[in-house]
Design a protein around this nucleic acid. Structure first.
Lengths: 205, 205
DNA sequence: ACTATTTTTGACTAATTGGTTAAATCATAT
DNA sequence: ATATGATTTAACCAATTAGTCAAAAATAGT
């Protein structure tokens, strides 16, 4: 039954590939480097996954699927619309914090190959969730809890923009903050509560 | 004196390289493809710019410098803080609209090579401008025009997040909107006025 | 213990790619 | 025109890289 290293070469490959692809991107990643990191022979990569393209697609969809799933789960939060926004952002921030390298990797890859986004959406049932949340928001708008001119699609994009961009732009923000003797980590931490405040201030009547 | 094609091989190379690098990224770009697009021999690339790295760095700094310069100019806008935000966003949106491919390219490249950001900042005097704007904002905060709890660094990042992210996430947003029969172009257009409203609503007392 | 099947490897290949070189072409001044 | 220097090219090179293959090693079934 082998030692702990016997935990599936296939699994080890996927983990190593995820890490290399995430840091180097598809074009920058090297099959040899993935093999080294997984502690196996390069030929084994092709034995399990026929080509670099197929390995990448599998890894990408698995990784992005996992993260999007957690992301979508937060749509089920109960409570007032303001509670929802606060809770959603809390969980969303945690998710980003633990997967810092993911956003720029994800958006870069789907830009170079938009088909990946289509495939990802087929796996998940993302649009149904969006439809639900849209209805909920529209209802709360009718109830006069939030401003009438708040458009749900924009609100969602705004919330995601505010939380994701600081990770995408991290090297730029870090460099600029260095000039001001400001601390990027602290900056991220402050945003945890700030973003929700900023959004709620903006949409409440 | 030649015909119009005589406008500098060097210039033609830079334009072609900018286009290829922007769409394919450094790793994905091919020197041969750049040569083809510039309508010259591949060896000429190395004659003018010694290597792919040097060509890339020159093109990146030139392109990013040009865009950042326009970006920084907008900090000089006069008027009330709300006017400033509106004007800034107007110009910023135009700039993004005309350079759609730039944001994801830029942030991806500085992520893979943060040193580029440092070099870019040396060329421009970006931090001085940020310092000026910070003082201005702080003053208007003391004057009680905007909420006391508005932190300037966060406000700037928020504004940039809201305007830049929709371009970075374009393939994702497009795909999701397709499911809802929503139009991405119209969505971008709506944001031109929406973002300023969203920000101002949030920071006004 | 023996056989069949699966997993893993080392050595190899074909294609791509960044980069070089020496010769050819063009431009300019004398 | 012609010598000089800058520009451009075709042909080539060396290194890297994804992918292959046949043989070895491990695993499981009998």
């Amino acid at each position: 039954m082998g030692k702990d290293k016997k935990l599936n070469a296939e699994q080890k490959i996927i983990e190593a590939a995820a890490d290399i692809f995430e840091t180097k991107g598809f074009e920058g990643a090297r099959m040899q480097q993935i093999a080294d990191k997984a502690g196996i022979n390069k030929a084994l990569l092709h034995y399990y996954f026929r080509s670099k393209d197929l390995l990448f697609e599998k890894v990408f969809l698995k990784l992005a699927g996992k993260i999007f799933l957690k992301f979508i789960e937060t749509f089920n939060i109960e409570g007032s619309i303001f509670d929802k926004i606060e809770m959603f952002l809390q969980i969303h921030q945690d998710l980003l914090y633990k997967n810092r390298k993911f956003p720029i990797f994800f958006f870069n890859e789907i830009t170079r190959n938009p088909d990946l986004m289509r495939k990802l959406m087929l796996n998940l049932e993302i649009s149904k969730k969006f439809q639900e949340i849209t209805k909920q928001f529209d209802q709360e708008k009718k109830d006069g809890i939030i401003r009438q001119d708040v458009e749900v699609s924009h609100l969602i994009v705004n919330i995601i923009s505010l939380s994701v961009f600081p990770y995408i732009g991290s090297p730029a923000i870090k460099e600029i903050m260095k000039e001001f003797d400001l601390n990027y980590e602290q900056f991220l931490d402050e945003r945890r509560t700030m973003i929700a405040q900023f959004v709620i201030n903006s949409i409440k009547v």
